[in-house]
């Protein structure tokens, strides 16, 4: 039996799934219209202090009378809210969900505000075949963080990404105006290899890498200030040279004093020019 196909049936597609998705994207664009600059903080490797760098950047830039927001896109291991002293509950208004407010007036949203203490991110049913739809839901959650949080006018929105390169491409698809990403590494060769992969992913996706930050770049003595070696390797410099981007900062580990961020790093995040 022959019959007409989708394009031959001229009536409306009432479900309009595509137009619903387009409308979701438009909501992100509309919400971010009042945000001057969106910058991602990424790393191929976990445990390099990416969230720490994000929080420190936000705190320092906000202290300079800039309006700053932080979107914690690390849905499974959110840490930014605690680092920035932001707490829930969050208020729902007709315009959306109000962000939590952290130190220096930083506007923040994170799954940390939504989950019970110590509980992992868990999705409702069905439990079977969860792997098939989990990634779609996670991207949807980040989309709602972007579109449904009342960010208000911001000079800068920092997006703290989870380890790995996938989420950066998702973010770039959701935020066409994404200014770029800062790559965070530690000096070790393992980190270098891992971060190189995520920087390559960014390059392939056409996303500008603003520069590299080498965290835990030595151990700062609390008494005399001398910086001694902590890891072997020179990942920051190697990655910067390989990808032709600036090494924006080398931050030694010093448990007793918050790092003073370098001006090139702050400039790169705020203007794209170190």
């Amino acid at each position: 039996m022959t019959h007409r196909t989708y394009n031959e049936v001229k009536g409306d597609d009432r479900s309009g799934l595509l137009s619903q998705v387009v409308s979701q994207r438009q909501r992100v664009v509309d919400r971010l219209a009042s945000v001057r600059r969106v910058v991602a903080v990424m790393s191929g490797k976990g445990g390099v202090g990416k969230s720490y760098i994000t929080a420190t950047l936000a705190r320092e830039i906000a202290a300079g009378k800039r309006s700053v927001g932080v979107l914690d896109a690390d849905l499974k291991s959110p840490t930014c809210a605690r680092m920035l002293g932001a707490r829930g509950p969050v208020q729902v208004t007709d315009d959306g969900v109000q962000p939590a407010i952290g130190v220096n007036g930083i506007r923040l949203f994170s799954t940390d505000l939504l989950l019970e203490d110590g509980k992992p991110l868990a999705w409702r049913e069905p439990g079977s075949e969860r792997f098939i739809w989990r990634g779609v839901l996670e991207t949807g959650a980040i989309r709602e963080f972007l579109s449904d949080v009342v960010w208000g006018p911001l000079d800068l929105l920092l997006v703290d990404l989870p380890p790995g390169g996938d989420r950066l491409a998702d973010l770039a698809a959701l935020v066409p105006s994404l200014a770029g990403a800062v790559a965070v590494t530690i000096p070790s060769e393992e980190s270098e290899r891992s971060v190189a992969r995520s920087m390559e992913s960014a390059r392939e996706a056409g996303i500008k890498v603003l520069g590299v930050v080498e965290n835990m770049s030595g151990y700062g003595c609390e008494s005399c200030g001398h910086v001694g070696p902590l890891f072997t390797g020179n990942a920051g410099e190697t990655l910067a040279r390989t990808f032709g981007v600036p090494l924006l900062a080398r931050i030694p580990f010093n448990p007793s004093a918050p790092p003073k961020l370098s001006q090139p790093l702050v400039d790169a995040v705020l203007t794209g020019a170190p």
Partner: peptide, 26 residues
């Protein structure tokens, strides 16, 4: 998971509808 409705939407999307409908939160 896509946050879309078959048959079309009869109601505006609520703030964080996908998250609130799918995440086990506090």
């Amino acid at each position: 998971s896509l946050g879309v409705k078959i048959g079309g939407r009869t109601l505006d999307e609520q703030p964080m509808e996908l998250i609130r409908s799918n995440v086990v939160g506090k």
